[in-house]
């Protein structure tokens, strides 16, 4: 399986070995541990430590990395400048890694910034078919296909529309049985079947995607699993670990610390990006059985509890994308 490292901040590459360094945090004295980690915003770091340990047990460390994912899926204000993308590409080449530029959903101004980054990559690469672009917005795909048809698009995890049941890693909540005659167990079974399936089961849609140049699809690890055909319908599939997407907004609780309006609605003005210094998690997330964190605009869940089948071949993946921290 191809092992990819996904970062949004190039500083993380300054100590690549440290990024995969385990830490024996569970045996810390209780008072110290709680002082450091008993804060919902620390879930990002707890998830990191859990993931590093799990990956080490699978023999996956910095020496196993063969591809760099770099970019921004979840916040338009954090889309890197062309200079940063070029630096990421340069580092990837130095390391002998392949390169994937990651994009998110895009309003018009964001699309122009993404296009500038792709233009810079093409200028640097010389051949447009030597790197990939993860697509999470159909408008980005259209621009890519029009201007650089040789670049390989990867269908991103926001466009696969998987239901994210990460709030319920152990069992599903009882459904609302209002006016329903069927028994609860049957309803739950039918719901699970629906949520395991993707619209990729629709042949005309698969053909359409193939015509759009899609050969690879990124998934999130979700507790209900993903019902993929053994031949994956001719697509290649990858999955992200350890953070699975739940939902995201253009408004942002962390930006709202600086300007309360930003907590509720997006603004046209640039964001001061307080998320680079801290984070405002949201109340009541800590009680969920799987750690959930609101990091800037995005809510994610730690998927370690249900990652096993994805990591050990139970789901036909050929790529694992390691997120050392919530990719914001």
């Amino acid at each position: 399986m191809e092992f990819c490292l996904y970062i949004t901040d190039l500083k993380l590459l300054e100590d690549l070995g440290g990024l995969f360094q385990p830490l024996d945090w569970q045996d810390m004295p209780a008072a110290l541990k709680s002082t450091v980690f008993d804060n919902p915003n620390a879930a990002d770091y707890i998830g990191h430590l859990i993931a590093v340990e799990r990956l080490a047990s699978l023999g996956l460390d910095e020496t196993a990395v063969t591809r760099l994912y770099f970019g921004q899926e979840f916040c338009e204000h954090l889309v890197p400048e062309p200079k940063g993308v070029m630096q990421a590409l340069f580092i990837a080449r130095q390391m002998g890694w392949d390169f994937t530029y990651v994009t998110g959903n895009a309003v018009d101004s964001t699309l122009e910034r993404i296009a500038a980054n792709i233009e810079a990559l093409v200028a640097a690469h010389g051949d447009a078919d030597s790197f990939e672009v993860v697509i999470n917005d159909w408008g980005v795909l259209r621009r890519l296909r029009q201007e650089y048809p040789a670049i390989k698009p990867v269908l991103g995890r926001l466009l696969t529309k998987q239901k994210r049941l990460g709030r319920f890693p152990e069992h599903m909540p009882t459904p609302n049985m209002e006016e329903i005659d069927t028994d609860t167990d049957t309803i739950l079974r039918n719901q699970m079947r629906a949520w395991q399936a993707l619209n990729l089961t629709v042949r005309s849609w698969r053909r359409f995607l193939h015509r759009q140049g899609i050969e690879r699809i990124d998934l999130d690890m979700v507790p209900q699993g993903a019902d993929l055909m053994p031949d994956a319908w001719g697509f290649a599939f990858g999955a992200y670990y350890p953070w699975s997407y739940l939902t995201a907004a253009r408004n942002c609780p962390t930006a709202g610390l600086v300007d309360p309006v930003r907590r509720h609605v997006p603004l046209d003005a640039p964001c001061p990006r307080p998320c680079r210094r801290g984070n405002a998690n949201l109340a009541n997330m800590a009680h969920d059985p799987a750690p959930i964190i609101q990091r800037g605009t995005v809510a994610v869940t730690l998927n370690d509890a249900f990652a096993q089948p994805y990591l050990t071949g139970g789901v036909p993946l050929d790529r694992l994308v390691f997120e050392p921290f919530v990719p914001l």
Partner: peptide, 16 residues
Amino acid sequence: CFYNDEYCFTLHTGNL
């Protein structure tokens, strides 16, 4: 919605 409904894939139910 607080989140972008276009990309909100969490479970919604009348029970919780």
